[in-house]
Design a protein around this nucleic acid. Structure first.
Lengths: 217, 217
DNA sequence: CAGTTAAACAGACATATGTCTGTATGTCAA
DNA sequence: TTGACATACAGACATATGTCTGTTTAACTG
């Protein structure tokens, strides 16, 4: 049968079965279901489990795959030196009316009806949610209408950070400025005026913007 | 010890441990490594495997989870009614030198050294990759230096779309304009001048920008 | 030719993991 | 109280899955 024995001159085996195995594993990982060794075996028609495992182990040895030994479906993408890939799903509250935003944020029971967004971030248990931006008040900071902002839930923020704040019954995204005991919500667009508040008035910080996303498709 | 017996009036169990289990599974799925029953057990401190399994099976019965019986790490997101989620991992080529970008894009074997980014998108097999933006030439379109653009690999694009193009040995992000048989790469910043090319010259389109991301943390 | 090597194979084994059975505990309703 | 129910626990079992050992085949080298 078609054995594929020693090419000997074998360079790092590009464009060969081995790379196809890598591509297969990549596809399965992207689809969210890491393959078992036997699934690789079947996909390539190997008659022995070990044949698939040899390719997988070789890919690990070459650094083109990573794995957790012993664990089932343990093959992963190699982490590029950086921190581990840590993806979380957060609720997308973008279409909640402003008045209900606070309840939506604080009541996880509302989340099931929303969309979900995959974000990468620290493993910390920080609550996060996503909102859709309305208006052009932050275009100067590269935040356009329709953009999605990913917000880390917190009650306070530091000067200069971009925050989501609740002003009376409305939620708004602005840059926070703390001056002379005053709270200023500063737009990043000369056509808009800053909103100035005294502490403990009808303003409340709902979270800090940690990421901005815009889909162009 | 703290048992959590029958609330009886139990509505679909929102805001309870069960929802937290669902959130945990969601996170693991988004991270690309579906959990085992025993991993759920450990995560919640259950002393019996069966406790975790009961929650998981209940979630399946409620339609909030799906699963492949018997298969290891077989719990999935429900395909139909529930919140659909289609997360893929794409290579982050942001730090590839411009000259090597084309090779990096076209040779999957170069991807190993990069990081990976989770993006949501159609299940179509469209190749995608991510780049880090340099320079301020697109600030008018809300694309700032340091932003990450997610690119769909394609050789052509339509007038008005934002593309990644290779000009001589450099990769650049610009808005594409097709005028009078000419190819124009138009910056979105008055301080920069458009680049105008004749067709089939030293310009080549590498892909179309479908998403922009910016981390503020 | 003999020796080396990479790939594939066959079979067994060890562990990981899903699943089942039975029991105990606390809350609610009759 | 009693029964029903949901939850948690303990232990066992069956299967899925990773891993190991040894053998075979084909290509290359000397």
């Amino acid at each position: 049968m078609p054995r594929r024995p020693n090419p000997t001159t074998a360079s790092p085996a590009r464009g060969t079965i081995r790379s196809e195995v890598l591509a297969f594993v990549r596809g399965r990982l992207a689809a969210g279901s890491p393959p078992t060794v036997r699934e690789v075996q079947q996909a390539f028609g190997f008659k022995a489990v070990e044949s698939a495992r040899q390719h997988l182990e070789a890919l690990v040895a070459e650094g083109r795959l990573a794995k957790s030994p012993g664990r089932s479906r343990g093959y992963r993408l190699p982490v590029g030196g950086g921190p581990e890939l840590n993806v979380r799903l957060i609720p997308q509250l973008g279409r909640v009316q402003a008045g209900g935003l606070r309840e939506a944020i604080e009541d996880p029971d509302h989340w099931d009806r929303t969309g979900w967004l995959a974000v990468e971030g620290p493993a910390t248990g920080a609550e996060m949610f996503a909102l859709t931006v309305r208006g052009e008040s932050m275009t100067g900071a590269g935040i356009l209408p329709g953009d999605t902002v990913i917000v880390r839930r917190q009650d306070t923020a530091r000067d200069g950070e971009i925050v989501v704040a609740q002003v009376r019954d409305e939620a708004t995204v602005k840059r926070l400025r703390l001056r002379d005991g005053q709270i200023v919500l500063q737009p990043e667009n000369p056509a808009f005026a800053p909103l100035i508040f005294a502490p403990d008035t009808e303003i409340r910080i709902l979270g800090r913007v940690v990421e901005v996303r815009r889909r162009l498709a």
